[in-house]
Design a protein around this nucleic acid. Structure first.
Lengths: 222, 222
DNA sequence: CGACGGGTTGATTGTCCTCAAAGCCTGTGG
DNA sequence: CCACAGGCTTTGAGGACAATCAACCCGTCG
């Protein structure tokens, strides 16, 4: 499970991989987090940047009464925890057992000063996050429950489909908190798509999904 | 109306001002847009970056059936239209008669290559946008209608209150499309806050608002 | 076995949307 | 000067979609 090495080649954010080879010893260490454990908390000092080598992470904000909004899921190859200020703006938790590579923020900044292309990568990654957030605002503000779930499926299909099969690392509640819905509403939407023959469930735990009709799914994604 | 000059001193994004003095002739021109006119459209080439010297702008995305999500309002001093890819991700329209300064993207990139502090500013501005989008996701995904309107009022109070009076440049529909609500719901929330003595209307057009009890308002902002 | 986490499904509720009407202000033209 | 149209806003009545509350199923693990 923890055998994958190096940056995901399909990832737009190979900065840590490049640093590892091009620069000397910037990677501080690798670290393992058990399912459900916190990697960092909102407003904590942002001393490290992280890249996932195995597992998955959720980044979220909480309201004072416990309502939760997940801003993003981070999958293998993704870089997260990149902040400009010195504090994290999300809490990050391992969704499943997760292995990350760490890099000291101070080191990264030092390198970025010297190497223009690294600085450029930092901007690119931040813009990538921004673009995702912008699209997600549209989803949260204006899409129906079914449209949200469809958009989620298409996103996950793009990001983690291996051989056409999607193995979701997150539970229904996580999906709901990502989409601004309740877990029941997510479940109903998935059931409807199942009834309509657009997707199929494979395993016993309903987390392995196969998309049977991407065209129809895309049509539902306004 | 067009008498306000220069960048808002409280704005974190004085880059265009600095370029204007520090660099030679990067500012391409100033330009005026009438109320309701488009400055650029989604997916158009992003050849320029803009800074508002007077007026206000809305940036939005549309779904194919016309549902609209406004991602941000840009006020005097704000820089917008900054993209990393070569295409705009929003449509930008003048909410009221608006005057902007333009800078060629190509020039900006050239300067950023040479001047590290400019590159740093670009990253800072992008991160600032990202932070706003992240907060807005929480609002859109998890807050009630009243909480959204309260958050909007506090944001506008912070950004454009002069002498305690807020003069909103945008109509109820714009506010609604920013908050993921309908204009009627926005109106009802404002009426409720009015009834409760938390805000007062000044002019005849309901766009001049004075906050009578910021403490109570902040308490509603979970 | 029994408890627990995760998921689905059903019944009911509630918040916000939709549809509709009316008021106010501005601008325009007779 | 008044009449009238149009944009913006408020307010009310009714409806719809998603939330809530609840029951149940299924696997896993102690």
């Amino acid at each position: 499970m923890f055998s994958r090495t190096g940056a995901n080649p399909t990832s737009p954010t190979s900065i840590l991989g490049r640093l590892n080879t091009a620069q000397a010893r910037i990677i501080a260490s690798e670290f393992k987090y058990r399912k459900g454990t916190e990697i960092y908390g909102e407003k904590e000092p942002a001393d490290y940047v992280y890249q996932i080598t195995a597992g998955a992470v959720r980044s979220y904000k909480l309201l004072s009464d416990g309502r939760r909004q997940i801003g993003a899921f981070h999958l293998v190859g993704d870089v997260f925890g990149l902040e400009n200020g010195s504090f994290h703006r999300f809490t990050a938790e391992a969704i499943v057992d997760t292995c990350v590579r760490l890099i000291k923020r101070s080191s990264l900044e030092r390198v970025a000063e010297a190497d223009v292309s690294i600085a450029h990568d930092l901007l690119y990654m931040t813009t990538d996050n921004l673009q995702h957030a912008e699209d997600h605002m549209l989803l949260l503000g204006r899409k129906t429950s079914l449209e949200r779930v469809v958009a989620f499926l298409l996103e996950m299909d793009r990001r983690l489909a291996a051989a056409g099969i999607m193995v979701l690392p997150m539970c229904r509640r996580d999906i709901a908190d990502y989409l601004g819905l309740t877990l029941e509403t997510v479940s109903r939407a998935l059931s409807k798509l199942h009834e309509d023959g657009i997707l199929g469930f494979l395993g016993k735990n309903q987390r392995q999904i196969i998309l049977l009709n991407r065209q129809q799914l895309a049509n539902l994604n306004l």
